Simulated assay, not measured.
Amino acid sequence: TPVDIIICDIMMPQMNGLEFCQQIKGDIQTNHIPIIMLTAKNAVDDQIECYKAGAESYIAKPFEMKILQARIDNLLQSREQSRQSFRSKMEINISNLNYQTSDEEFLNNAMQCVERHIQESEFDTVQMANELHISRSTLSRKCKVISGCTPLEFIRNIKLKYACALLKKKTISISEVAYATGFSSPKYFTKCFKEEFGMTPTEYQSQ
């Protein structure tokens, strides 16, 4: 079952919350999951330790449940806004999408992987998972959580963002861009572009 968020106390048996947080954030299969740390300590150094361990948020005890719920809602809403922003943007730039470092690293690696195969129409999720050294299930989970796309949708989205950069060169034709980004035909490229961005490549190029 996919985990949307983790809430843990610093004081736990066997392993303390900071160690647990570091373990979650050190594993590529789980480092995309936001963590809220709960602790009875409220010194600045304690808060810094939580953030150093990789936690996204920190709440000192005692606290009102409404505060915890508001923090959960805020983190989940922020993640959803980042997903929507990533997919809808017509250029490749994740620096202003409010991602955690591990998410940015995954997105950068995944985008570079697609770009290395940008002209290959047969490039698929099996090759992508192999090059990223993760399982297909982990690739699927991380793509969906971080970008809002399935791996195939992610590949297409990156190719279309790359196409936008090419289309800014007014001298290049739609057909040239379609084949340069690995689409089987200009007609299919136009169909995908309009589905993704709500306009045709010609309309985008003429802006």
Results as ranks from 00 to 15, higher is better:
7 I>E: 08
152 L>E: 09
64 E>F: 06
152 L>A: 13
46 D>A: 12
84 Q>F: 04
94 I>N: 14
55 A>L: 00
44 V>R: 15
77 Q>N: 12
148 G>A: 04
4 D>S: 10
80 E>Q: 13
54 G>D: 06
65 M>L: 09
150 T>R: 13
71 R>H: 12
49 E>A: 09
42 N>G: 12
60 A>R: 05
157 N>L: 09
18 L>D: 14
202 T>H: 07
26 G>Y: 08
162 Y>L: 10
99 Y>A: 01
184 S>T: 10
47 Q>P: 15
91 E>W: 10
86 F>H: 00
28 I>V: 04
64 E>T: 06
199 M>N: 09
130 N>V: 02
112 Q>Y: 08
92 I>G: 01
26 G>M: 04
35 I>A: 06
24 I>G: 05
166 L>N: 07
147 S>M: 01
126 V>E: 15
175 S>E: 07
30 T>K: 04
207 Q>W: 09
169 K>G: 10
34 P>K: 06
85 S>A: 12
49 E>Q: 12
94 I>K: 13
55 A>G: 11
63 F>R: 01
57 S>K: 11
36 I>W: 12
171 T>E: 15
190 T>V: 04
18 L>G: 15
17 G>M: 05
188 Y>N: 08
201 P>E: 05
27 D>C: 05
69 Q>M: 14
96 N>W: 05
59 I>H: 07
13 P>I: 00
147 S>D: 01
105 E>D: 11
77 Q>P: 05
205 Q>C: 02
12 M>C: 03
30 T>P: 02
100 Q>K: 14
158 I>L: 05
25 K>R: 08
130 N>I: 05
134 I>M: 13
78 S>T: 15
88 S>Q: 13
16 N>A: 02
12 M>Q: 04
193 F>S: 01
37 M>C: 01
110 A>H: 11
93 N>L: 09
136 R>A: 03
102 S>E: 15
47 Q>N: 10
119 Q>K: 15
30 T>C: 03
14 Q>C: 07
124 D>K: 02
142 K>F: 02
107 L>R: 05
178 A>V: 00
190 T>D: 07
62 P>R: 15
65 M>Q: 07
177 V>L: 05
137 S>G: 01
51 Y>R: 07
87 R>A: 07
179 Y>S: 13
90 M>D: 14
136 R>I: 09
31 N>T: 02
165 A>T: 08
53 A>S: 11
102 S>L: 13
132 L>F: 01
53 A>Q: 08
108 N>F: 01
120 E>A: 01
115 E>I: 12
154 F>A: 00
174 I>T: 11
106 F>W: 04
171 T>L: 14
161 K>V: 07
55 A>Q: 04
200 T>V: 04
14 Q>N: 12
69 Q>A: 06
118 I>M: 11
79 R>D: 00
148 G>C: 00
25 K>F: 00
